[in-house]
Amino acid sequence: MKPQEIKGLWLGLAGVVIFALTLPMTRLAVGTPEAPQMSGVFIALGRAVVAAVLSAAFLVATRAPWPRREDWVPLALTSAGVVFGFPLFTSVAMRYVEAVHASVIVGVLPLATALVGALLHRQRPSMGFWLCAGLGSALVVAFAISKSSSGLSLHAADALLLAAMACAAIGYGYGARLSQHMRAEHVICWALVMALPLTLPLAAWARPQVALATSAWWAFGYVAVFSMWIGFFAWYRGLALGGTVRVSQVQLVQPFLSMLFAVPLLGEQLDAVTLGFALAVIAVVFLGKKMPVRAGAPA
């Protein structure tokens, strides 16, 4: 393995550790149905506003060049995935499911990220890859149904988490592609700044109108500064150096890290069924990442 690929894996791991706290911190900020705190809409859009302000200052300080004309559409797709889609869907969902539960649902994200990366580079995943992707998705749905109180159906929060996973994979894939010729830090900064005309007024509209727990504000600060900003510095740089398909493998540890963080932070319990499904999903994802992906025409 080349030195830059090793560096990419380490940077990717640093990003994953930061992202692993996102679900527990979001749960802490949004509260529960019995003790609600911030709205999911405010958390998603407010954290984007804070990160956008930091991004604007960073772009000015580093004298970042304007994106090329052909980069604006990929930047918009990156923004749609990781500035709007993933934060909004997860923040709304996390009031109704525990962080340990959500960690299993998002466990197939590495496979989705690898798939998006392969499609963007016009590669052709093998039948084994598709079988693993299907099995991993089936395991996640089976877990969600087994935990549902409404019979053989998905809880609305689980559907939101699955949508969030798809959004994140798209945002990661396009962001990694842009990081091939842009500074990784500039990719997420431009994605945040270009979203500011929408996120600022919407966050102001959704702002809390009542006093909230101090812990909720601390959790909001974490997802704004680390989950929405600093984590992407390491993550996109890691994907650019080590390759999207290879580095996305380090996401395998994210569900377990999220679970470990959720237990002391939120007092959640990790039962055998949840752990068993998590291990099964990760095993399938691991096998899927080993399946051949044939090269196609260059993008």
Rank of each mutant, 00 (worst) to 15 (best):
V73P: 09
V73D: 02
L75E: 00
A76C: 11
L77G: 02
L77Y: 10
T78S: 05
T78I: 11
T78M: 13
S79N: 08
G81I: 01
V82D: 02
V83G: 04
G85T: 04
L88M: 13
F89N: 02
S91I: 14
A93E: 15
A93K: 06
A93H: 08
M94L: 15
R95M: 14
R95G: 08
R95L: 06
R95A: 07
E98C: 06
A99R: 12
A99M: 10
H101C: 01
V104Q: 06
V106Q: 15
V106P: 12
V108Y: 14
V108C: 07
L109F: 11
L109E: 15
P110R: 01
P110D: 15
L111R: 11
L111S: 07
L111D: 00
L111Q: 05
A112I: 01
T113K: 11
T113Y: 03
T113P: 10
A114R: 03
L115V: 04
V116G: 00
G117F: 10
A118E: 03
L119I: 11
L120F: 12
L120A: 09
L120P: 03
H121P: 00
R122W: 11
Q123R: 11
P125M: 07
S126F: 09
M127F: 15
G128K: 06
C132E: 03
C132W: 06
A133L: 15
G134K: 04
G134I: 03
L135C: 07
L135Y: 12
G136M: 03
G136N: 05
G136C: 01
S137T: 09
S137Q: 14
S137F: 05
S137H: 07
A138Q: 01
A138Y: 03
V141A: 08
V141F: 06
V141P: 00
A142G: 05
F143R: 01
I145D: 02
S146L: 15
S146R: 12
S149A: 13
S150T: 13
S150E: 15
L152R: 04
S153A: 15
S153L: 09
S153F: 02
L154S: 05
L154P: 13
H155N: 12
H155E: 13
A156S: 14
A156G: 13
A157L: 14
D158G: 09
A159S: 08
A159F: 01
L160Q: 08
